[in-house]
Design a protein around this nucleic acid. Sequence first.
DNA 1: ATGAAAGCGCTAACAT
DNA 2: ATGTTAGCGCTTTCAT
Lengths: 325, 325
Amino acid sequence: MAGIRDVAAYAGVGVGTVSRALNHTGYVSKEAREKIEEAVKVLNYHPNELARNLYRNRSGMIGVIVPDLENPFFAKFLKCTEIELYKNHYKAVVCNTVEISNRVEELIDMMNQNVLDGLIVGVDPPPGLNLEKIRKPIVSLDRNWGSCIPVVTSDNKKGGALVANALIEAGCRNVLMFESKIQTEQPFDVRAREVKRILKEHDVSFVGADIDWNMLSYEYYLKVVEKYLLIFDRVDAVYAGDLIASACIAIAARKGIRIPEELKVIGYDGLEISKLTVPTLTTVKQDIPQMAKCCVDTIIRILNREEDIPMMRVCDVELQQGGTI
Amino acid sequence: MAGIRDVAAYAGVGVGTVSRALNHTGYVSKEAREKIEEAVKVLNYHPNELARNLYRNRSGMIGVIVPDLENPFFAKFLKCTEIELYKNHYKAVVCNTVEISNRVEELIDMMNQNVLDGLIVGVDPPPGLNLEKIRKPIVSLDRNWGSCIPVVTSDNKKGGALVANALIEAGCRNVLMFESKIQTEQPFDVRAREVKRILKEHDVSFVGADIDWNMLSYEYYLKVVEKYLLIFDRVDAVYAGDLIASACIAIAARKGIRIPEELKVIGYDGLEISKLTVPTLTTVKQDIPQMAKCCVDTIIRILNREEDIPMMRVCDVELQQGGTI
DNA sequence: ATGAAAGCGCTAACAT
DNA sequence: ATGTTAGCGCTTTCAT
């Protein structure tokens, strides 16, 4: 494995000249440059990025933590994030937290060990996290990690309002809501709060459904949706994330419940699957590419030591009209 | 940022002793060890992994290349691969090839630059690839990269037979197949070939559909499926990957075509979405976790310089019974 | 058992 | 414009 000294020797110059030639930094004569290029080719030389990293004290790697890649929301988020990072000459190191605990702490350690230059997190912070000791940037997707961690979120208030108003305009009186319980004070809690507020204002009653948010499988969703529809037989509408909403449409079809006549459904997220249901799912679409872009943009700006980094960036949402409401 | 010399100074020992203590290599007296542990805590010392990497000439990173994470097959594959890599103390650097060309070559360069210790590839090799110059392991998922690149595949022959036999037993006479054209001699071509062979044997006629495999969106699938069902109105069955098969079920529902009475559908892959269609999709399920495990296991064994690495590992498939055939 | 010292392969400051 | 040299922070001989 040829090193820079081999190249220097072969080209008959010093290592400094080689380094300058390769990095396009400082002056290098035409002859020297040509001899070096020749040597590089002959010796099949590739600069050892590890040595560069050590010197520069950066790895060019950003960790991206998501709960579960099987969830299409996070798969798409990672896809978009990876592409944005690539545009900024960074690589994405991926981490699923599902099935394994303590992974977040480990990735934070990797930052301290200089293996990662930063972290984009789509998961809750680990309990008892001490942000003091972290010297590298973290950007969060829709979670509160602390006052000094920038958050990229989508317009949950508008999203909640879109949901509530759609339900009200459709004349729903009894809504079954699959929503996370408001307890951890996360940005997306705003959404459920807004939905409930507006529904109350219009005297629409609703009931929350309690599900295990760590279970990601349609079989589980189908079971849960079926159970709840049985329990609450007066329900005339369901509001849930797209995956559960889709499960709901499937259950309705199997039970002969007509949508939207007998049961209205409104989803949230605007995932691909919303196009596939029959009828297509009316849902509030989050701009995942935009959220990914904001996350990457923010972390890059911190890495570049820019000033006035916004601590909160809110991406737009829009109603994607379907046939379920 | 405290370094190993700071720890050594604080503990009143040499750097060598600190290194040995931290790595549990060589002898270190109890007293020294305790003083060092104390120093590590006080100074909040984290060993710089970059320096270690340089010395050891490894990064602990494996690149995983997939066409598109929005495809649930690859999302799940990456998820499982990441978890398996983690168990082996490696990290996964992810790369979508969609939207950007030349990414494979770049990741290969990263191997030569010691940033990646190996590559797991779920994409075709770039044209004109020269394997000679690659000195680090590559393992491929279901693609031929060359005779010296191990391949992990699933039992495409059995899978094809399961499809064909299911179609025959259901009495289909005219099958519309959404399958990749056999031209690149990839392992998964065996599947289509086997389906066709058995169908011919039983005098079942079939017609292939030509679609743009780089387009991944349900809206596109829906459009294409609709077009083909119109063109071939004598078709009584469709065979396609789960995503297209699901689109097909949606189209049928919208057009009032009863499944399975008027049109039978059989999918391939066994993705989550197969549980969600109405009726549930009959499909051939690939064992994605097992394939991921084989890929990781193989690359780890090469990295560990083990002997007798199998050049081809075939994972089992099984028929997942649904209601579409 | 431990400290000193020589690298790992590169970059950049410095002297020429 | 270019060669020499001192690190980047660690691991590992090699004496002691």
